[in-house]
Design a protein around this nucleic acid. Sequence first.
DNA 1: GCTTGACTTTGACGTAGCGTCAAACGGGCA
DNA 2: TGCCCGTTTGACGCTACGTCAAAGTCAAGC
Lengths: 278, 278
Amino acid sequence: MFRLGEFAQIAQVSGRQLRFYDQLGLLQPAHIDRQTGYRYYSIRQLPRLNCILALKELGLSLEQIGPLLENEISAAELRAMLTMKRAQLEQSLREEESRLRHIESRIAQIDSQGAMGDYDVVVKSVAATPYLSLRCACENMDEVVRMVRTVAEDGSRLIRPALRDKLIVVARNDQIDEKLDLEIGFSLTRASNANVRITGEYLLCASELPAVDTMATIVRPGTNPASHCAFGAIGVWIEANGYEVAGSCREVFLEPITGPPGFEGALVEIQFPVRAAI
Amino acid sequence: MFRLGEFAQIAQVSGRQLRFYDQLGLLQPAHIDRQTGYRYYSIRQLPRLNCILALKELGLSLEQIGPLLENEISAAELRAMLTMKRAQLEQSLREEESRLRHIESRIAQIDSQGAMGDYDVVVKSVAATPYLSLRCACENMDEVVRMVRTVAEDGSRLIRPALRDKLIVVARNDQIDEKLDLEIGFSLTRASNANVRITGEYLLCASELPAVDTMATIVRPGTNPASHCAFGAIGVWIEANGYEVAGSCREVFLEPITGPPGFEGALVEIQFPVRAAI
DNA sequence: GCTTGACTTTGACGTAGCGTCAAACGGGCA
DNA sequence: TGCCCGTTTGACGCTACGTCAAAGTCAAGC
């Protein structure tokens, strides 16, 4: 018979651990002195302790190990438990690999740029939302800005505030063309079929922006020159994390547009639908 | 300005999380109503929250993220943190891969045997220990048993109990021979140079069993027929976990030998020094 | 104005598996 | 008998929140 400390030393565990396992009923000492409360362990208890440690190494929780020790579990049930554990492990392995790639890309970024840019890509899911927009092909950025401004101003006037939500620009890059194929419009708080005619005989048509499960997003203040950096950042991020683009990019204006000149003061969320690259 | 719930919905985090980040000072609401205590967040705080989430995704703790948000950290320090994180991640990746292999081998075992044997391999480290032993080449198992019994009995008589520790048999399988090349003797509680002459003119000589950092061990009751299963089990385990044998196998008799016939009742720990296979 | 139901607040407890510390007591040795 | 080490119970700490409770707020419908 060994006292707690000796047994702990033999088995290479801490005394606290033995006390804890006693408390959980996983491994009760062979004898407890009634006078002193001292725990005494038999060397014959070593196999049981080793069994606990081995199962713990497999990733089972102590709660799961208890019934296993008492042989209350059939081989089939154990197999099922292990299979589940395996699936969890494979999942967490994939996640950790992704994290590792991500960290490496950040380290590379620091090494090349000397510091960390504003580079806060977050994956979220977005629900489908009703959308009131026009589609247009613009020749250059000036035209884009004019169109967006027109839609923003007229939309603000002509769509009821209770219905109107946020200005959203969708870039449809289906065919690689010199023109920018855009949809410009407002998301709505609820579905509506009404179309809205605005300045220059343009017509905002009701449609729906589809839901996206995994959307890589980045929020940037200002749109014009800095936005290219943001696009670059999100592109690097997508590649580094083993994703690929899976749909049309969206720019969501989180605040109503105010200042008359460009959109420098605007807060824009750039969204890229992504999926795990094969 | 948004109330907690709205902001939480926009950012796809829980309200509890926002309150928690407030409490830690990571993200304090833009405004708090003094009357009601209601938190009000500005959409301008979304980038900061996204920054927190992005850094958390990298595996940094909230405690580490705090200073980062306040730009109190230089690029070099951040690089160092990330490099450390990368090393940790790589380490845990290796561990998880090993666990996965281990689980798969257990599942395969269940599928082939229908149940789980007593199969509780544990890795521990053992310290160097003084050793009083004889070396002998045995022709067959009977001879081994005779020799072990002789050493056990004479050792028990001739070595002082305070000095004598446990009976240990080392199997030196250096050259693959038909003979079993063994060392049989006792570990000692402290170093000693005295040799001991026992029955049949054999001489127990003082030496030292070297320390082993990673020792795969398994405890089995009984030695004779069942021990082959134990050897098989530990072999499977070593292979499944990506180790290879790195030294001589030891059998440690955890209890003094008592019964006159074979060693069926004995509690034996089989030890294999291992290292990670290349 | 009143009710109602959705939302918010603080506060507390729980998580997994122990590590660490404190105060009090036991055991063996000189 | 004193001393030092080992042991006991009990408590708190750790991470990043989830969950629940009791009480107060807000906006909308009647």
